[in-house]
Structures are given as C-alpha cells and as structure tokens.
C-alpha cells in the first residue's frame, strides 16, 4: 500500500488539520501500514452481500410533534469561547 503525499494533504484539508512536514511523513507511514492491513478484505467475496450500516435495522424513527422547552440559551452560551447579543461570535466571514 503506497499513499501519495497528495492523499495526506487532501485528507488534512478536508479534516481542517494543519500538519507539519514531519507529521505528514509519520502519518503517511502509519496510514500506509494500517491501510495495508485492510487489504485483507480483498480475500472476501462480497459481491452479493448487502452493506450493514447499523447493528439493528431501524427505519423512520418518528416521534410526536410536540412543543417542549429546549435548553436555555444562556446555559449554552456560557460555554461559548466568544459571544455577543445572544449569539456565537466568530471572525468576519464576508469582507
């Protein structure tokens, strides 16, 4: 299993993680080893097998549409790193 440096960079970008060159190298090495181990699955004939996304088969879990009191805004904002006027504040998005 050989990964391209590109593959790591793309995954890092999608994950919003910044990696130093040293980290990239070490992660590439370890992921190659792990993904190499996964090639084991090639041995299986899975052509006519359905995929399982969940251990219990459930579909359309509904609940009655009742109004209820949600958590208090103040309690939630208590944990905000930055807030203003009852909202989360972040750096300017539109220039």
């Amino acid at each position: 299993m050989v990964l391209k440096a590109d593959d790591i960079e793309k995954a890092a970008l999608l994950s919003r993680l910044a990696l130093s060159d040293e980290e990239k190298k070490s992660i590439q090495e370890k992921l190659e080893q792990i993904l190499g181990y996964m090639e084991k699955l090639e041995e299986l004939d899975l052509k006519n097998v359905e995929a399982t996304s969940h251990a219990v088969s459930l579909s359309n879990v509904f609940r009655p549409d009742h109004a209820y009191t949600s958590k208090e805004i103040e309690d939630i904002l208590e944990q905000a790193p930055d807030k203003a006027s009852g909202m989360f504040r972040v750096p300017k998005v539109i220039g």
Binding site: D7, L14, L17, I27, L31, M38, L41, L46, A51, T52
Partner: peptide, 26 residues
C-alpha cells in the same frame, strides 16, 4: 480523523467503506 476522511473520500469510498460494511454483514 485523517484515516476516516481518507476512506470516505471520493474514489476510495467503495474500496474501503462499503467493503467494510459488507464485511460487517458477513
């Protein structure tokens, strides 16, 4: 996170993720 992002990314999804879910079935 990087491993998960990689196996879910375009081009690898069927080779890894779907295969793993099928293995889960067997």
């Amino acid at each position: 996170i990087l491993l998960g992002t990689y196996v879910l990314s375009a081009g690898y999804y069927d080779a890894y993720y779907i295969k793993a879910q099928k293995t889960r079935t067997v």
